[in-house]
Design a binder for these strands. Structure first.
Lengths: 140, 140
DNA sequence: TTAACTGCAAAGACTTTGCCAAGTA
DNA sequence: TACTTGGCAAAGTCTTTGCAGTTAA
């Protein structure tokens, strides 16, 4: 079965090479929003010859084609990546203690975003909502 | 009369030098969220001897002390800065055509942000909400 | 086969830092 | 005067790119 990423490469006439297959698979299987170095690490477990430039190039290629999403969270130097499903949008809560990312979706906020833009005389094209938070401690 | 930034510096024992005074004034008077180069340009109109390193150092100093806010908007390479008033929070709508920044505040969203974090088991520490939008064209 | 891809190292863009002269309290 | 600042240029990060060998269709 064709992965979504492979299908899109085929469609756009982009070669689905060994490196790309590996990197695509890593993104699909990772749910921790890895950065370039982490992706490289995971890729090198499968093929140690893959270099950092290829990872950068491949992630950019996928991101430019909206197959994956690139995030630049506040306070972090490197970008992080995640798989995207066209039909499902979500925002992020970042645990400032650990860097862990929790995804969430809130219908009300989505509507409000649209409304606010409209009220200001704009058509909403994109948005970014990130919550930076620390876990509530429980002494149970 | 002491500017808010000068007062902050005094309070924190940070020297309020000529360069810092100029840069502080520029941030206070600018409402277009200028980046480092723009701040340098404006500073150099007053004192051509101020260098880019000083602007970077000063903006970082102010930002680290929460006297000004630093923003990294999506799709822009350089950071942009703005004055902050402790008691007044706002989010940003970025005009993707011109880079113009419109500030807005929405009570409902503020509450939702808090609630979402709580529901996920976190205490909200900070957040980032940015709307990227294009102006609604009117043929009037 | 042949145009596209990859690895390596070098180059870029933004930001920070070391050094020493200069300014502030 | 003592200690912090600031200008300049060099160094640091993350990311992109040129080149030549390699590979997928």
């Amino acid at each position: 079965m064709l992965s979504k990423i492979e299908a899109m490469c085929l469609k756009k006439g982009i070669r689905f090479t060994g490196s790309r297959k590996i990197i695509a698979q890593i993104i699909i299987e990772s749910n921790d929003h890895p950065d370039v170095d982490v992706v490289l690490q995971r890729a090198n477990k499968i093929n140690p010859k893959i270099g950092i430039a290829t990872v950068y190039r491949t992630l950019k290629l996928f991101a430019d084609n909206d197959i994956i999403a690139k995030h630049d969270f506040a306070g972090e130097e490197k970008s992080r990546y995640e798989d995207v499903n066209d039909d499902e949008h979500h925002d992020h809560l970042i645990d400032i203690k650990t860097g862990k990312v929790v995804e969430f979706y809130n219908e009300e906020i989505e509507h409000l975003k649209e409304k606010i833009a409209k009220d200001l005389g704009y058509n909403l094209v994109d948005h970014r909502l990130e919550l930076y938070a620390s876990p509530i401690k429980k002494d149970d």
